[in-house]
Amino acid sequence: MRLISLTAIAAITAFPLFAHADDRIEDALEARHGYMTMLAINMGTLAGMAKGEIEYDEAAASTAGANIEALGNYAVSDLFIEGTANGEVDDSDALPAIWENPDDFVQKFADLGEAAAGAGEAVKGGQANVGPVVQKLGGTCKVCHDDYRKKD
């Protein structure tokens, strides 16, 4: 009896903790998916212009470049909290390798930030300037996805 009530009390007091943990996990997942989607949207604009599928527009290109630059400064690795690897929660393609090589993972985000530095300016001055920026940025997406994102 004592054991049961103790368990019950423990469960009740712990419940908000669990609930809280759940929120944290869901927020982190949602935020980092949103983060990646924002990268993709802006990369889509630049890649489209580089290929000539979207007409070059200096202001739009510069905004997209500056957006990626801003995202490159965001400490997104903080969103990869414990317990959010692929297999631990639904809807995560983040490989456990992230938590085994945290320094390398942070470094790969830093590489993105570095590639993004000055992107808003670099894409100005003509369509021909967009391609090299897309390649530099896209390479950093690939390198990280190769090691840390599950393909599916």
Binding site: A40, M43, G44, L46, A47, V134, Q135, L137, G138, G139, C141, K142, H145, K151, D152
Partner: peptide, 20 residues
């Protein structure tokens, strides 16, 4: 591969779901 550089030439013909 959603990196905006190494995209197969026919990826936009099949829709992003199948392409990924």
């Amino acid at each position: 591969p959603e990196d905006f550089v190494n995209v197969g030439p026919l990826a936009n013909k099949v829709g992003s779901d199948i392409a990924t």
